[in-house]
Design a protein around this nucleic acid. Structure first.
Length: 500
RNA sequence: GGCCCCGUCGUCUAGCGGCCUAGGACAUCUGCUUCUCAGGCAGAAGAUCGCGGGUUCAAAUCCCGCCGGGGCUACCA
């Protein structure tokens, strides 16, 4: 990558979350794009925790963010750096700005500022505070008056009036008039710097040359450029990503029930699906390919192919992608991922390596048994947490369902019972060690020709699963085994008797 | 209110002056695939390219105006 001077310099990007909430989709997508850009250019991805506002900081959020990034596979090359531990650095620069008159103390009260703003808006002007303290602060009488008062001041940037123009990699040229900015605040005091200042200083100290962030930061950019100029720092390249929107087209937030990344994880979304999905919110490969894992994205990614308009978060697409990645996950791996959900549902309990106990029946099963069950549902589930609902019947002692469910179309329960008896009779003939899907088909399919497919298969399947929708009866039967299959058919028969 | 950004099927988008009777994907609907569901396969419907002017032989694509939506407007980040 060429720098402005034409010298080859290493790409350095950063992801700088504020631990005031868990990592959500919007921020995760920003992290992803930064990460991709770094990898694409063999640069460095730096993680920086922007925790200057201690009142809003929570340790658990910080942990959540780190955990979510790791889970997504977005590992950082350096950091995490904590702004709360870098106060001495900021202090040095604040003093410098103050000394050079590029920043000053302002002693206006919040009320005064509020009134000023109101007045300006009434007049149709841009609300801003151009402070007269910077002009008077050198006068000794003002100095001592301020010193003697109990007013707590704030440090503001002495904004020069000019036009700031910068080129956004995604949007092209953007121009601002700094007269509309006013003397914006940069620190509460020497020890408490504010966002725009710390951001600029850290980006400089960490040699960040590409700042990739959300579009909501566009209005901060001229302020940050002004600070860079005052401090003699180079301006990095900027790329402002389009926002992720809720269904009402406003910035996606909790208001839209937007979930944190770790919540998606808990529900059984795969990181691959989330990555693929987030990448396509704003970016696309300019061809018709639609499945991309992290490695593929690195190859194809470029900032220039990111769109400009906000994208509505559409969970149906995520679900589709998740189903796709579940179907394409290695079965052993998928089984391992599903087991925790079965354990949490109190269906099974791990007793030792690869051995599990079915809690209702006390039967001991092994990993391969669970694997067979998972295989049946692999192409049916969209989220891992659905595995409980969908496979419960394998782990239950007794199935609960209405006898009506056994009826195929309009046939009577008498007929259902008769068909179940036929099934029972035929299954009894199969030797236990020959009891498998193929054998069952060989024996039972001829019956369907005689009595009708739905007439035989539907009650068979319902008797085994207790469900309106499930995998086919032969596959279920093989896993259940001869004993349980017969048991469940007899249970179904009983149900018919009671009800008819 | 001020400044800034954005505007192609319901949604994500391709498109960069003629290849566009606007392409793909999700969602929807139909058919096929052993009973159901899911999946797979095949197909259908769905966008007068925000609106109005202009430039041009030719515009979704270039220019202007308007309208609409959003972001920011903190002693938050």
């Amino acid at each position: 990558m060429l720098s402005k001077k034409g010298i080859k310099s290493e790409v350095k990007v950063r992801f700088a979350p504020s631990p005031t909430g868990p990592l959500h989709i919007g921020a995760a997508r920003t992290a992803l794009f930064n990460w991709l850009f770094a990898k694409k250019n063999k640069g460095k991805f730096i993680l920086r925790i922007e925790d200057t506002d201690i009142s809003r900081y929570k340790k658990e959020y910080e942990k959540d963010i780190l955990k979510a990034l790791k889970w997504l596979g977005l590992n950082w090359d350096k950091g995490p750096y904590y702004q709360s531990r870098r106060k001495e650095i900021y202090k040095k620069y604040i003093k410098k700005l103050l000394k050079e008159g590029k920043a000053f103390w302002c002693y206006h009260t919040k009320e005064e500022l509020e009134a000023e703003k109101k007045e300006q808006m009434k007049k149709g002007e841009a609300p801003r505070h151009i402070c007269e303290h910077k002009l008077n602060s050198q006068k000794s009488e003002v100095k001592s008056a301020i010193k003697n008062s109990k007013l707590k001041g704030i440090i503001r940037f002495n904004t020069p009036i000019k036009k700031i123009k910068f080129t956004d990699v995604i949007r092209g040229e953007i121009e601002f008039d700094t007269s509309l900015l006013g003397d914006f605040s940069i620190a509460k005091d020497l020890n408490n710097p504010l966002y725009n200042l710390t951001c600029v200083i850290d980006d400089y100290e960490m040699k960040i040359n590409y700042v990739i962030r959300g579009e909501d930061h566009i209005p901060n950019t001229p302020k940050q450029i002004l600070i860079q100029e005052a401090l003699g720092f180079p301006t990095p390249y900027y790329a402002h990503l389009p926002l992720i929107l809720g269904p009402d087209r406003s910035k996606l937030s909790k208001r839209h029930n937007a979930m944190p990344i770790n919540e998606y994880k808990r529900l059984g979304y795969l990181p691959e699906a989330l990555i693929n999905f987030m990448a396509f919110l704003g970016w696309n490969p300019k061809n018709e390919r639609e499945f991309f894992m992290l490695d593929d994205l690195i190859k194809e990614f470029s900032l220039e192919s990111i769109g400009k308009s906000g994208a509505i978060f559409n969970i149906q697409k995520l679900d589709y992608l998740n189903g796709y990645y579940i179907r394409h996950t290695d079965l052993n791996k998928l089984t391992k991922m599903c087991i925790p959900y079965l354990e949490k549902a109190k269906l099974i309990k791990k007793i030792k390596d690869l051995k599990f106990k079915i809690l209702e029946t006390n039967e001991i099963i092994d990993f391969n048994y669970i694997k067979k069950i998972v295989k049946l549902e692999q192409e049916r589930i969209k989220k891992l947490n659905e595995i409980k609902e969908l496979t419960e019947f394998f782990f239950k002692k007794k199935l609960k369902y209405k006898p009506e469910l056994l009826k195929w179309k309009n046939i009577s329960l008498i007929e259902v019972k008769r068909n179940l008896e036929i099934l029972e009779r035929e299954i009894l003939k199969i030797k236990k060690n020959e009891f498998n899907e193929k054998k069952l088909k060989d024996i039972l399919m001829p019956l369907t020709e005689k009595y009708g497919r739905g007439e035989i298969l539907w009650p068979f399947r319902v008797a085994l699963s207790g469900k309106k929708a499930s995998p086919g009866p032969f596959e279920i039967a093989e896993i259940l085994g001869k004993e349980k299959v017969l048991e469940r058919i007899r249970e179904a028969k009983k149900l018919c008797e009671v009800s008819s």
